[in-house]
Design a protein around this nucleic acid. Sequence first.
DNA 1: GTTTCATGTAACGTCATATGTTACATGATA
DNA 2: TATCATGTAACATATGACGTTACATGAAAC
Lengths: 152, 152
Amino acid sequence: MKRDSRLSGVLHVLLHMAQQPGPFTSETLAKAMTTNPVVIRRIMAGLRDLGYVRSEKGHGGGWRLACDLSKVTLRDVYMALGSPSLLAMGNRTEAPGCLVEQAVNAALDQAFRDAEALLLSRLGEVTLAMLGEDLRKRLGSRKIHDISAHRA
Amino acid sequence: MKRDSRLSGVLHVLLHMAQQPGPFTSETLAKAMTTNPVVIRRIMAGLRDLGYVRSEKGHGGGWRLACDLSKVTLRDVYMALGSPSLLAMGNRTEAPGCLVEQAVNAALDQAFRDAEALLLSRLGEVTLAMLGEDLRKRLGSRKIHDISAHRA
DNA sequence: GTTTCATGTAACGTCATATGTTACATGATA
DNA sequence: TATCATGTAACATATGACGTTACATGAAAC
């Protein structure tokens, strides 16, 4: 099955936004992501609803960060996307009458729940500010990364 | 994305097979799973290649267990399916030139790897024999569950 | 006020993948 | 030799992410 890359994508956008004052139009962001402005609006909609970013129409409009980056975790961003399913696998039938399948489901569910919990926990440990710090180290001597000079 | 239920399905089949001597035709198993015989052959192919089950053609043919159930774990079965991806999410670009995306990927990859490792580890802790034990408890006083009396 | 710019969103099209189905070849048994 | 069962290719279907077009809404510039 195709892998969902919305979390990866939206984090990429947010981190770029944290490097420059903004605002950023969906078109600018889309170019940097090699995608379509509508896709940007789509993945940003949830973050806007939760107040992590703001959007404005018209001249000089676009997207701006509207949160404390040290208070928002990757888990928060994930939830802003609507908490899409984390695992690519699942049970054939959720509430089977067959006892055999119930036994199988019980074993798998336990493993699935543990893995999901760990993943959410890990995402909850990382703030956007920490991502920005890591980026600064990677940039090293280089100057601020301008989004207009974006290379995939 | 649609969730992959092959592991759930093939375990269901194996556990049913462990309750009766067999052999079982793909058609019998398919009826119990409310699916198509070809689907059964498809998910069983990998297990046959690894020697966990055997198949025979012609009259009296079908599928038989061919392994020590206490030695085969859910992880082994998962790998027999070809180790399909466990996570529904992934990075937008695997080897990005953009440092911002590299920073994002690094953070996500760490979380993803941990979750996958935990899931594989959990699957590796459960043997088919343990599943059978759990099933026996669920059956309680009831007699062996006949696959022909299967209800979803 | 009209034009221009930007978001908001519906409505498609596209692509990948799991799953379902048909068809037919292969091999084993009666 | 007929029947049964697997092996597999080929095609159909369903779902969901992603891409694209079209148009409405609202804000700023002129």
